[in-house]
Amino acid sequence: MALLTIRNLTVAFATASGSFRAVDGIDLSVDPREVLAIVGESGSGKSVSMLAVMGLLPDTATVTADEMTFDGHDLLHMTGAERRRIIGREITMIFQEPIASLNPSFTVGFQIEEVLRLNMGLSRHAARARAIELFTAVGIPEPAVKIHAYPHQMSGGQCQRVMIAIAIASNPRLLIADEPTTALDVTIQKQILDLLMELQERHGMALIMITHDMGVVAETADRVIVQYKGHKMEEADVLSLFEAPSHPYTRALLAALPENATGDRLPTVSDFFGQEGVQ
């Protein structure tokens, strides 16, 4: 059975110029132990649809769906207590902008230890030890020193790794990773992806990975969803997607890899659509 099932999810924002549909009828499901990658245009509703799952959208957003369930629990109509039991524990998220999602007023150590004490019931002492273990696992250098640092005293990629450590601290059953390696060089990116895949195999964790990096998709995903302007364009297993992308947008996206630059210009999706005569 699928762990997370979403049917016909729509998110509309009230804006000064009227209502704007950021997500329009998305279906999605993920099984335990599965890696689902979501790729697609910037602004196509990837983050918004996952924030809807987490219940973290602002009041200006209207969320509707025919179904949105996690392990049989209705995420749309649940009590506050039930929500607190699931969100942040069984489902956690690595947010796209790590520096902005850490609290600037507390040390990074305090922030992860708080999660460990509240969610995992660890003592202060045990939480400190576990925090250092997690920081080591995500490759933060000198973890016992860095634990005392405030977010602004860490590099972009170090903050991103703190965020990852916090998200895996409670052994979630579903991890939603929104561009989790954007600030990491390829060597550390590899270490992090290996770690996520290991957790996923070991605990049967399901992973939804939003990324624009086709290399990351190629090296981690089982299945891939391609999004464009709030709609799902294509869904395929990873091999079929790279071997024989069926939707023109997917083909265009793959053609825009910088490796494919002709002369001194990079191809964009609209160049490609122009060539293929697609609108």
């Binding site: 972009g156 954007t182 624009h212 910088p258 210009r265």
Partner: peptide
């Protein structure tokens, strides 16, 4: 500083161009 790290390939191409 990492100006295109969050951009899909097509938008990235547009910005780099």
């Amino acid at each position: 500083d990492e100006p295109v790290s969050a951009l899909d390939l097509s938008v990235q191409a547009q910005v780099l161009n």
